[in-house]
């Protein structure tokens, strides 16, 4: 186990690059919030948030370098959450 940890040391520089991307995306989302994209505004904001999450989960939370079991777990959790959202929104739309 210790061995695995040592193989997956992420360089400090990678973390700083990830952080820079996160800050840039934050500036981007704040800047374009002022522009009116109509109904796409929410979609764009959530898309940027999703991209930011991917960075945090993969690098800061290390998932990219973890065993397969962690990825499977995360996938199951996210698919569950997504199904709940899809089912509820369908219910609201077709009510």
């Amino acid at each position: 186990m210790e061995k695995e940890h040592k193989e997956h040391f992420i360089p400090y520089g990678t973390y700083i690059l990830v952080w820079l991307s996160l800050i840039s995306l934050t500036v981007l989302t704040v800047t374009i919030a002022g522009i009116d994209f109509g109904r796409f505004s929410l979609f764009i904001a959530l898309l940027i948030a999703a991209v930011k999450s991917t960075f945090v989960i993969n690098y800061f939370m290390h998932i990219k370098f973890d065993d397969l079991i962690f990825k499977v777990f995360l996938l199951v959790a996210l698919v569950t959450l997504a199904s709940i959202f899809i089912l509820t929104s369908t219910d609201i739309f077709f009510r």
Binding site: A33, D36, L42, A45, L46, S53, V56, F60, M61
Partner: peptide, 21 residues
């Protein structure tokens, strides 16, 4: 991991509350 999760939740709270136009 816990700290990053708290960060993740804020990543969604921020646009949903502060950036509505």
């Amino acid at each position: 991991l816990y700290w990053h999760l708290v960060d993740l939740i804020w990543i969604f709270l921020f646009p949903l509350f502060y950036l509505i136009h």
